[in-house]
Design a protein around this nucleic acid. Sequence first.
DNA 1: CGGCTTTGTAGAATTCGTTCTATATTCGTC
DNA 2: GACGAATATAGAACGAATTCTACAAAGCCG
Lengths: 197, 197
Amino acid sequence: MSRSQTQRRKRIVQTAAALAVRGGVDAMQMRSVAERAGVALGTLYRYFPSKMDLVVAVVTEELDLLEGGIVRRPPTADTAAGRAVDVLLRATLGLMREPELADALVRSLITAEVRIELDTRICDLVWRVATDDLTNLPVGEEVSDAPVDRDSTGYVLIGSLISVWIFELVEVLKGHRDVDEVERRLHITAERLLASF
Amino acid sequence: MSRSQTQRRKRIVQTAAALAVRGGVDAMQMRSVAERAGVALGTLYRYFPSKMDLVVAVVTEELDLLEGGIVRRPPTADTAAGRAVDVLLRATLGLMREPELADALVRSLITAEVRIELDTRICDLVWRVATDDLTNLPVGEEVSDAPVDRDSTGYVLIGSLISVWIFELVEVLKGHRDVDEVERRLHITAERLLASF
DNA sequence: CGGCTTTGTAGAATTCGTTCTATATTCGTC
DNA sequence: GACGAATATAGAACGAATTCTACAAAGCCG
């Protein structure tokens, strides 16, 4: 991909993110994005074959920031459950600063076909936090050096915890739950799920 | 609501369900539903202000059937975890018979504002199964006689298990997971979550 | 009965994702 | 430096949810 293409792509994603921050996914209309990014609608669709792809791209950037924050200040609790909850809670608070984007994240995690790029990434992050293996986590790069056994019982349990977290996130976004309650529930759940870590 | 209105409503939901079974939510177009149910588009929108409301109505009926099946043949495993997994697995298999509707169910659980009508109902059902309290479960009626403490630790844990189940369902629907794998994962998770039951 | 509100009908209009068409531009290659 | 393929552009067109408008039918109530 050429320089100008990378530029264009970045410009599109940034424009989309800006629109999504106010107004959410609905405000992020393909026409507006194309217009404000200074590309033709057809071009936008060349880069992102569907709106969902664009949403995923936006959300992936958001996730980069989150990951960066975690790596900068790793959680210090002395149990795996404590550290995992810490990470998830920080993620929750971070996402709540842009509820519209958070909504997009959640929705894309569930709807999009792109599970390998988001779901797995979150799982791997929490896995590393839980197992206290945060030393070799690159910042902007692929996170794929340590051989994580994604079928192990432990990884399944982390996956379950992530599922629970995402649902709590959904409830918060719907306004049915506050963050304190989420913390309580994540604690209760994580203590059981990660007791053997 | 008058007799003819109840009739109309039922006719709409049945038509919608029929369309959804083949072709899924996409095939369940508001115009088609209105046309085949013999009502005007405006009328359809009077009964169901958005497509999502219609989907939820369809899915709620589906849930009735599921609940009925569970009550007819309650699970017999001798641990709470075993019984819970049994129910969820049966639900999974049942839903897999109409993948398009299952998809609608999952999506509505997450997207729709109607959490109280579906999520809670599933939780209550599993709660009763887990605590072996299936005697007083009416069939087509409200399930609200026994005072379930929805803030108790136990209920939170059931909720977490449901979250995990829904995610597994999503994965199955995406074709990323088979039912055996779901069973394995639910077992692993439920054993931890419900150990203290 | 006669009027009034509610409910229903028919169908046009709007919105937004997505696709299509026709034309222009860019870029690697000879 | 010119040719051809890939890429961009402008904008029309399409499909489906949703909304709007104008009118008809059904109920209710005095």
